[in-house]
Amino acid sequence: MTRPFVNWSGGLSFTPAEWAEPADEDEVSALVRRARENGTTIRPVGSGHSSSPLVRTDGILLGLNRLAGVLSDDGERATAWAGTTLRALGEGLYDAGLAMDNLGDVDYQSIAGATATGTHGTGLGFGNLSTQLTGVRLVTGTGETLDVTADREPGLLPAVALSLGALGVVTRVTLDVQPRYELHRRSWCAHLDWTLDHLAELQHTNRNMDFYWYPRSDRTQIRVINRVDGAHHLSTSRTPGGEPRQSQVGPTHRTIPRHRELRFEEIEYMLPSEAFAVCFAEVRRRIHDRHRRVAGWRVLVRTIAPDDIWLSNAYGRPTTTIACLQNTSLPYEEYFRDMEAVFRHHGGRPHWGKKHWLGARELRPLYPRWDDFQAVRRRLDPDGVFLTPDLARLLAEP
């Protein structure tokens, strides 16, 4: 069957030649083998939250929504189908008395899509979601099923943990988990100058901390999250006006993500943390001088711990992210391209699942293990079954 695909924001749409929704791994393998024999491409898709064209194909679009649910757990690790949404994964783990270490800002995504694109939350001690993976099962470009863990094919785990869907169709993932716990989320508003003056303190004295900046008012919304049973505890004397204006207590998956009704486009770059202050100052100046008329939405600042995943945007360095959001009814390209120039000047790496205009020529110098990833890609997908024109542009493959 076929039908048009439209992503979450509505900014990406296309009609594949075929839309397949396999119910098990055997069906996935059969689809990959058929695509290989016919010389066509096949691309996996999760919830469609990403705004980049990673899933676009004129061949087979392989939906993962039927491969959903938590399969097993042993108290320290849990295995789930790749198409499980973060919301459903959180509920399934909670029912088993477990929780993930950290989550991103939305729970609409599938776990495989989130890890494949480097989705992240915030907190100096937390890597992106891919760092929680201890095992991945995928169907390679030859139709074979491959299990990658720290004990089996360990050299491949840093490649498959964040793969852009270029190495195969991920069918299940295994995650580090821990006993479930409660979080206390608080937020309040302050002027941007106050927020920047207290930023390091807020980041170091809270488990999770981020802030939104509203350019037209120069106000921010600060958000901090701490374990109810933990040592982190923000003193209300550090907040302008005393008590935070919003407060919520609950499990991880109900406290960290937020429900999103309004649809938006987004560009986000991951910066070396030492470059954040200078970069953000330039972003602020340019938005005020050039884009205040159209920049009606917010700018989000978060942190990510360094990791060793080859295509991770936080590879090898403490990372601070800047994301510019724009309502889908408003123009964004001129604004985003100008911000991208600032981010690139300060050594930023683009979020794989969001808007950017870089190709392989610009991307390769940003990732020390780029060529190692390419070698694995050619090994696992020798005939380019997953290599659409968009992915080929990113990876400089014919």
Score class of each variant (00 low, 15 high):
C324A: 14
D338N: 07
R344E: 07
A341I: 01
H345A: 13
Y335S: 12
H345I: 03
R337M: 09
Y335V: 07
R337F: 08
A323Q: 10
G347S: 02
M339R: 03
R349S: 12
T320C: 14
G347H: 01
M339W: 01
F343E: 01
I322E: 10
G348L: 05
E333Q: 12
R349V: 14
R349G: 06
C324W: 11
I322Q: 08
H345C: 11
H345D: 11
E334M: 01
H345Y: 09
P331E: 06
L330G: 03
L330V: 10
R337K: 12
E340Y: 01
G347F: 03
G348W: 05
S329I: 02
G347Q: 00
H346Y: 14
G347P: 01
G347A: 02
A341M: 03
R349K: 15
P318T: 15
E333Y: 08
R337C: 07
V342L: 08
T320D: 09
F336D: 03
L330A: 08
Y332P: 05
F336M: 03
H346E: 06
R344W: 00
N327P: 05
L330S: 07
T321E: 11
F336Q: 00
Q326G: 08
T321W: 09
R349P: 06
A323E: 05
I322G: 12
Y332N: 12
A323H: 11
R337H: 08
H346I: 00
R349Q: 11
L330C: 02
E334S: 05
N327C: 10
P331A: 04
V342P: 00
D338A: 11
R349T: 12
P318Y: 13
E334V: 05
T319I: 15
T321Y: 11
F336P: 01
D338V: 02
T320P: 07
S329R: 15
E333G: 03
D338H: 05
Y332E: 10
Q326R: 11
F336L: 02
F336I: 00
C324S: 13
P318R: 15
Y332R: 15
G348V: 02
H345G: 08
A323I: 09
D338R: 07
F343S: 03
E340K: 03
Y332C: 06
T328Y: 15
R344Y: 04
T319E: 14
H346K: 01
R344Q: 08
T319K: 10
S329H: 12
V342G: 00
P331I: 08
A323G: 15
V342I: 14
P318D: 13
D338G: 07
N327W: 14
E340D: 09
M339F: 08
T320H: 10
E340A: 04
G347M: 00
Q326T: 14
C324T: 14
T321P: 13
L325S: 09
E340H: 02
